[in-house]
Design a protein around this nucleic acid. Structure first.
Lengths: 166, 166
DNA sequence: CTACGTGCAAAGCTTTTGCATGGAA
DNA sequence: TTCCATGCAAAAGCTTTGCACGTAG
């Protein structure tokens, strides 16, 4: 059957893929692990551990997963190929979905911190060539392009407020 | 006059460039800062903070620069464009010279940790195109290609010892 | 005399780990 | 019963920072 997740070009939902992965390691898809996966796949934004710790372990009464479990699950999800580290911001690892979405890298604005995705077929093919030349078995890459985004490099021109006519 | 540093294609020695940079910030090239620069530029290997802390702050009697100073100087050297972060290994930032050497990126073996440099003109030009398309003012990039190096991917074939014939 | 620098030690932060408890098979 | 998992709290480990003292100009 086909996935009901419109934008994704996969047939197996992330949670299911994760379950499969866990099976191969004799591990279980616990409610906690499921909560983490669900949370992470509820949106396609970049994220770091803390975000989910806040929302999953934050509320005292109804904890969905503890800090430790979030971290532990993040590792598992990486192994499973469901997420990957894309950058490092504020001393935290930044992750993103790595399943069901086209390959891309990021332009990172060092002023506003915005991360702009761009497709990386060109780069991948260059890297494959390079790797082959070196007898290097490439398994992945991480490319952070640093600079100032269009918005932030606009001249002083005060940040558009309601009324912009003097 | 021309640099006496054979392999480098610069006319101003690193230390001097650093001094110039410091001047623009009303800072001084202290003996400690000089020691750090000298140490770092004594070889072209990749390095992390700890390496220099060990060798500069290690000996009790004759400390050349303290832990704090090494870290502080590393930041300055980055600002000055003399070094750059290239990767992250063992939870430490890995730096390399970023002055007087041709642009390149790295293939990083996740087995032995070896870092293989390769020229990146192709990649840079792709990135410049991409950046332009997004009105992004690129100032640099960091590319880590992960995989297994030729050496490590060779079949079991025991690591060549002295006698390799049975 | 004033501003810049340094070393020391303590603090900061994210991420990891040890341990006792709890639950699925 | 036997593992696999979790939460809590403490530990780890790199890097940063506050502070008091020195010292170049």
């Amino acid at each position: 059957m086909v996935s009901q997740l419109g934008t994704m070009n996969v047939t197996v939902a992330p949670v299911d893929k994760f379950r499969e992965f866990l099976l191969t390691k004799k591990m279980r898809l616990t409610p906690e692990r499921e909560a983490v996966v669900t949370a992470i796949y509820s949106s396609h934004d970049h994220f770091d551990a803390d975000q989910w710790i806040d929302s999953l372990a934050g509320r005292k009464g109804s904890m969905l997963a503890s800090r430790s479990t979030v971290y532990r699950t993040l590792h598992l999800l990486q192994e499973a190929g469901l997420i990957r580290k894309v950058a490092r911001a504020n001393d935290r690892e930044v992750y993103e979905h790595d399943y069901g979405y086209p390959q891309h890298d990021h332009l990172i604005c060092k002023k506003c911190g915005d991360m702009i995705e761009f497709p990386n077929e060109m780069i991948s093919s260059v890297l494959e060539t390079v790797a082959k030349e070196h007898g290097f078995r490439m398994s992945g890459h991480r490319l952070e392009v640093e600079g100032i985004c269009a918005n932030c490099s606009r001249p002083p021109q005060r940040t558009h407020r309601k009324l912009d006519m003097i």
